[in-house]
Simulated scan of single mutants.
Amino acid sequence: MNKRIVLARLAGSSPVPEDFRLEEVAMPSPGPGQVLIRVDHVSLDPYIASTLRGRHMSGGVPVGGVIPGEAVGTVVESRGDGLAVGDRVICRAGWQQFTVADIAPAGVAQGPLSLAAQKITLPDGVSYTSLLGVLGMPGLTAWAGTVKMLKPIPGDTFVVSAATGPVGATAGQLAKRMGARVVGIAGGPQKCAFAVETLGFDACVDHRDPDWVAKLAAACPDSIDCYYDGVGGRILEGVLGHLALGARVVLVGMMEQYKAPAPLPGPNLVPIIKFRATVEGLVVYDHWPDMPNFRRRVAPLVRDGQVIVREERVAGLEAAPDALIRLMDGGNFGKMVLDI
Rank of each mutant, 00 (worst) to 15 (best):
G172M: 00
R208D: 05
V213W: 11
A218S: 11
V213D: 02
G188F: 10
T170L: 04
V213N: 07
L174F: 02
I185V: 15
A214N: 06
A203D: 13
A203P: 14
W212S: 08
A203M: 13
C192E: 13
Q190R: 12
T170Y: 09
F201P: 04
A169D: 05
G200R: 04
A169C: 05
A171C: 01
G172L: 00
F201L: 07
G200C: 08
K191E: 10
L199R: 14
W212C: 00
V205E: 01
C204H: 03
D202G: 14
A214F: 00
A218P: 03
L216T: 06
K191N: 09
G184K: 13
M178K: 09
A214S: 11
K191W: 01
R208Q: 14
C204A: 03
C204P: 06
A195S: 10
A203E: 15
I185M: 10
A214Q: 02
A217E: 07
A217M: 03
A218I: 03
K191G: 04
A214L: 01
K215W: 00
P189M: 12
R181D: 02
V183M: 08
T170M: 11
A193T: 13
A175C: 09
F194S: 04
V205W: 10
P210M: 07
T170S: 12
C192Q: 15
G188E: 09
A180M: 14
G172C: 00
E197Y: 05
A175K: 07
P210K: 09
D211S: 14
A219E: 01
W212I: 03
A217I: 01
I185T: 11
P189C: 07
P189Q: 15
P210D: 11
C204Q: 03
T170E: 07
G188H: 11
D206I: 15
R208W: 02
A175N: 01
A214G: 07
A203G: 06
K176D: 03
V196P: 08
A171S: 01
K215L: 00
A169V: 04
K191L: 14
A214W: 00
C192S: 14
A193E: 14
P210H: 11
G172Y: 00
Q173N: 03
V205C: 04
K215F: 00
K215V: 00
T170W: 08
V182Y: 05
G184N: 07
L199V: 15
Q173L: 12
L216R: 05
P210C: 04
L216K: 02
